[in-house]
């Protein structure tokens, strides 16, 4: 893993980019008020990657959307709090929650951009990938189409898309999930934002593709001095990419700290449960730990299945006759058939 130890960088690290103070977001529904985010505060330094971990419903995505001001209001309502963005230099701090829609548009995408879990649904299916990226570029920068196209192709090259010219002309359904996520990343970094919010960007992808995307994000972060907010339910992924992490549970921050410390010595019982309930590659347990084991009982059954037990289990298992035998199975799908219904080679 790449570690940033450059002295100049450390100096920059002192510099805050984003500050969230006592943010409280409620949803107004038929059954009354629902608090999604309950008075959370955190900050993000320039050049830092902050991981936000939590399960579904913990409020992590709502927090991210509120920073982008993309929450549908109503039903969502920001009950209290401040989201301060520090553009740096002599520029004034901006409270994002007080911005007019028109001003917001110049900041969204240009200063802060976001990538989502579902690259399939974040790209418009009726436009070619190239069009969607040039559109984003031309929206924020006064450049001609041909220049925007050159930039888009350079971006495609940078996010390591194979054959940029082909992808430029392709519709979203013609490229793979990983490639779509790369197009999204190209779009997100097209205006050199200060902050990239990544909301579960690798959750829908295969592990090998996930690894490639994480590698790419790490590289871009170095190159562009990008600050990142990386949201995931997967502590393993957070451990790969974040410097610092906050753990959210039911709209509150239950733990905050260095990623290594959170993974290796979690302090809050909820975090302990979250870390322990992931199946490990190094040991096989009789029973996986669960979050209630920690939150309610404060302990769990950590008995490991020993090699001797595994051996004896195997002895009994494989002494039997097999219940199912699959022999030289071939399944073929025919993509095309001729008029008579016979497959076309």
């Amino acid at each position: 893993m790449v570690r940033r130890n450059l002295p100049a960088y450390n100096a920059l690290n002192m510099d805050k980019l984003l500050e969230v103070n006592n943010l409280r977001i409620v949803f107004e529904g038929e059954s009354g008020l629902n608090t999604a985010v309950d008075g959370i505060s955190f900050d993000l330094s320039r050049g830092e990657t902050l991981g936000i971990v939590g399960e579904s419903g913990s409020g992590k995505s709502v927090t991210a959307l509120s920073i982008m001001r993309l929450l549908p209001e109503p039903p969502a309502r920001i009950a209290s709090g401040q989201i301060l963005f520090h553009p740096g230099g002599q520029m004034q701090n901006i409270d994002l929650l007080g911005l007019e829609e028109e001003v917001l548009r110049s900041y969204r995408g240009a200063k802060v951009s976001m990538i989502f879990q579902e690259p399939m649904t974040s790209l418009n299916p009726v436009f070619r990938c190239g069009h969607q990226v040039t559109e984003a570029i031309q929206l924020h920068q006064k450049v001609s189409f041909s220049e925007a196209k050159d930039r888009a192709l350079a971006l495609f090259e940078r996010v390591k898309l194979p054959d940029p010219a082909r992808i430029f002309r392709a519709f979203p359904h013609q490229i793979s999930g990983g490639q779509k996520q790369r197009v999204m990343i190209a779009m997100a970094i097209s205006c050199q934002p200060d902050l990239l919010i990544a909301d579960e960007p690798t959750t829908a992808l295969d592990v090998t593709v996930q690894k490639a995307i994480l590698d790419l994000l790490r590289e871009l972060r170095e190159e562009q001095h990008l600050s990142m907010m990386f949201i995931s339910h997967d502590l393993g992924v957070i451990g790969e990419i974040a410097d610092r992490a906050i753990v959210m549970h039911k709209g509150k921050i239950v733990e905050e700290g260095n990623v290594k410390q959170i993974l290796n010595q979690p302090r809050h019982p909820y975090t302990q449960g979250l870390v322990a309930c992931r199946p490990s590659l190094h040991r096989k347990l009789y029973r996986l730990a669960t979050v209630p084991d920690f939150v309610e009982n404060g302990r769990f059954d950590a008995r490991i299945v020993s090699t001797i037990e595994t051996e004896s289990r195997r002895k009994t298992l494989y002494a039997n006759k097999p219940v199912l035998q699959v022999e030289d199975l071939v399944v073929r799908y025919t993509a095309r058939k001729n008029w008579l219904g016979n497959p076309v080679e």
Partner: peptide
């Protein structure tokens, strides 16, 4: 593709999307 599955056994099928595990 050939394999046996024994009574009481858990047999894992791993692979990436499109590898044919669901089809199997």
């Amino acid at each position: 593709m050939s394999f046996d599955l024994f009574p009481g056994e858990t047999f894992g099928l791993a692979g990436e999307s499109g590898c044919g595990k669901t089809t199997l």
